[in-house]
Amino acid sequence: MPRRYIVVMIVLLVVAGAGGLLVTGVCRVREAAARMMCTSHFKQWALALHNAADTFPVERNEKQVSAFLSGTIPHADLPPEQRLSWFISVLPYMEQDEVLRQINVRHGANDPSNGFLTTYRFPQLVCPASGEYDRSSREWKSTGPLAHYIGVAGVGVDAATLPLGHPKTGVFGYDRRTALPNDIPDGTSNTLLLIETSQNPKHWAFGGPATVRGFVPESAPYLGDGRPFGGWHGNHAVWSSKKSHYCIVAFADGAVHSLTNATAPEVLEALATVAGKEELPANW
C-alpha cells in the first residue's frame, strides 16, 4: 500500500476518534447540566415540604412538632388516586399562590371545578434530561402535565396505606402525616423523601401512585432505564458500551443526592422506611 494512503488512513482515524471524543464530551456536559438542574428542582421541593411542615405542625407527646403533609389532600368520599396530591398543599411555598387560588381543594382532581388542571404544567416537576420540555422553544413533548418527581411511601405495594410505626412505612402516606423527627427514628438523613422516575409518569395534581410510590421488592432492581425509579440520567463511557445510571433523590433532612444503579436494593428499601431499624452498610 502506498505511503500516502497509509497517512490518509491514519489522519482519518485520528479525526474520527477526535470527533467521537467531542460528541461524547458534549453529551457529558449536557447530562451534567441536566443533573444540576434536576438537583435544583429537588432542593426547591424539599425546602417547600419543610416550610409546609413547619407551618402546619401536629401534636406528638403533648407538644406541637413539624410534620410533613399527607400524600393526598384528605377527602373521605374519594379514593387516593382521585384526590388532589400533596403538590397542591405546597404550592404557596413554591410561590404559586395564584395557582392554588384556582383550585377547589374541597373536590377531587377530576372534578369539573378543577378543569384547568388538565393543562397546567410545572417545569419544576419535569426532569430536564427527559426532553419533555424544551426550554429554548418553551414547548412540551408530552400531551398532558407530568410529574417525574414523587414522594416515597416506604416498602411494598400497600406502603402508602400503612400506619405510622409500621416497619415498612415511609414518609408519604395517603392519609398519614410524618412528624419531624419524632416519627423518623431511622434518622432524617437516612430516610428518602423524594425520588425521580421515568416509569409511567402521571399528572402532578393527582393523588395515588401518580405522586406517591413505594419500593416493591418484586420489581427490583430499582434504578435505571426501564426500572421503577431513575432512568433519566446516564454517564456515557468513551471506549465502552457500559453506562451508569444516576437517580436524584431528596432525603427527609432536605439534602439532595445522586444514587447510582449500583445501589443495592436492600439499601434502597432501608432508606425508604422511617422506622425499619435497618442497619445500613458503611459507605452505602
Rank of each mutant, 00 (worst) to 15 (best):
G115R: 10
F116H: 12
T118P: 07
Y120C: 07
Y120T: 05
R121Q: 07
R121D: 01
F122I: 04
P123F: 03
Q124R: 04
Q124T: 09
L125R: 03
P128R: 04
A129P: 07
A129C: 06
S130K: 01
S130V: 07
S130M: 04
G131Y: 03
E132G: 11
E132V: 13
E132M: 05
D134K: 05
D134A: 14
R135T: 13
S136E: 13
S136N: 10
S137H: 12
S137E: 14
E139P: 00
E139R: 11
W140P: 01
K141V: 14
S142I: 09
T143M: 04
G144L: 09
G144T: 08
P145F: 09
L146G: 00
L146W: 05
L146K: 14
A147Q: 09
H148P: 03
Y149G: 01
I150D: 01
G151M: 13
G151S: 12
V152G: 05
V152R: 01
A153I: 02
A153V: 00
G154K: 07
V155L: 08
G156C: 05
V157Y: 09
V157C: 00
D158R: 10
D158Q: 11
A159W: 05
T161S: 14
T161Q: 14
L162K: 14
L162W: 04
L164N: 11
G165F: 11
G165N: 11
P167N: 06
K168Q: 11
K168S: 13
K168G: 05
T169K: 15
T169W: 02
G170Y: 02
G170N: 02
F172N: 04
F172S: 10
F172W: 08
D175E: 14
D175G: 12
D175Q: 15
D175S: 15
R177E: 11
T178E: 08
A179L: 06
L180V: 15
L180P: 10
N182G: 08
I184K: 13
D186T: 05
D186K: 06
G187C: 07
T188C: 06
S189C: 12
S189P: 04
T191S: 00
L193C: 09
L194Q: 02
L194W: 02
L194M: 09
I195D: 03
E196M: 06
E196K: 01
Q199S: 14
N200L: 13
K202S: 14
W204T: 08
W204Q: 10
A205S: 15
F206E: 15
G207V: 06
G208T: 05
G208F: 01
P209D: 08
A210Y: 01
T211F: 05
V212S: 07
G214H: 02
F215S: 00
F215V: 10
E218G: 13
E218L: 12
S219Q: 14
S219M: 13
A220K: 00
L223E: 03
G224I: 00
G224C: 11
D225I: 09
D225M: 12
G226A: 14
G226C: 13
R227Q: 15
P228I: 02
F229I: 00
F229T: 03
G230N: 02
G234V: 13
N235Q: 11
H236T: 12
A237K: 07
A237H: 13
V238H: 00
W239C: 09
S240H: 12
S240F: 10
S241W: 15
